[in-house]
């Protein structure tokens, strides 16, 4: 009974968000790109991001070991807010360079990652809840888009958690985790057959 009430409350939040238009980001995305500018001003962080991505592919990735050589940056973290299926906001501190998928796992957030970041599934699908933040991300690659095509509950601001890497401008970004119970019950969303 209580659980039911909570989920209805969460559903209402999601409905509201949909109304506020976070689902229609494509039209404005190119107007607000600030990433290029950011790269010119902070080359250090860019390098660190890449290092982290490389080590991700090598598996058994330990962010702290790769960043410890860089002194102060070890402690540089941003806040990412996961929004679960009940609409509950769960803020977590994430080191620059870490992927959203890893950040979720380190913080016991229920986000799958079936293919282990090899771009062979879409189970780490997250929805960037604010267009402004979505526009700060690099464009998804063809390979990411191929998997997003199959993602459950795809929106205009969907991304794969394994491909979104923490960087300073993303501080405060809110990421919704798609949910069957929410989508089936409220949004009237019909999953695509493929």
């Amino acid at each position: 009974m209580l659980g039911h009430m909570i989920s209805r409350f969460g559903s209402a939040i999601v409905k509201q968000l949909a109304k506020e238009g976070y689902l229609s980001a494509y039209g404005t995305r190119n107007l607000q790109r600030s990433y290029g500018q950011y790269l010119r001003s902070s080359p250090m962080v860019q390098r660190q991001t890449r290092t982290s991505q490389e080590s991700l592919f090598l598996r058994n990735h330990k962010f702290c070991t790769s960043s410890s050589e860089k002194g102060d940056e070890e402690t540089e973290k941003i806040t990412i807010v996961f929004v679960d299926k009940d609409g509950e906001e769960i803020p977590v501190k994430v080191p620059i360079g870490m992927s959203v998928l890893e950040a979720a796992h380190e913080n016991d957030i229920d986000l799958e990652g079936a293919c282990e970041a090899s771009l062979a599934c879409s189970t780490c699908h997250v929805i960037v809840m604010d267009t402004e933040y979505y526009n700060k991300l690099e464009e998804p690659t063809d390979e990411e888009n191929d998997m997003l095509d199959l993602a459950f509950g795809l929106t205009e601001t969907s991304r794969l958690g394994c491909q979104v890497i923490a960087k300073p401008e993303l501080d405060g970004v809110r990421l919704a985790i798609p949910s069957a119970t929410r989508n089936f019950a409220v949004d009237g969303f019909v999953p695509k057959p493929h």
């Binding site: 079936a114 879409s122 199959l150 119970t181 999953p191 493929h194």
Partner: peptide
Amino acid sequence: PVGIIGTNLYCAEETVGSISEDIA
């Protein structure tokens, strides 16, 4: 018989949701 591995994630969530309601 449609969908990919990940489709089952949401399919299972729905079934488990029904189970939880019935248990309650």
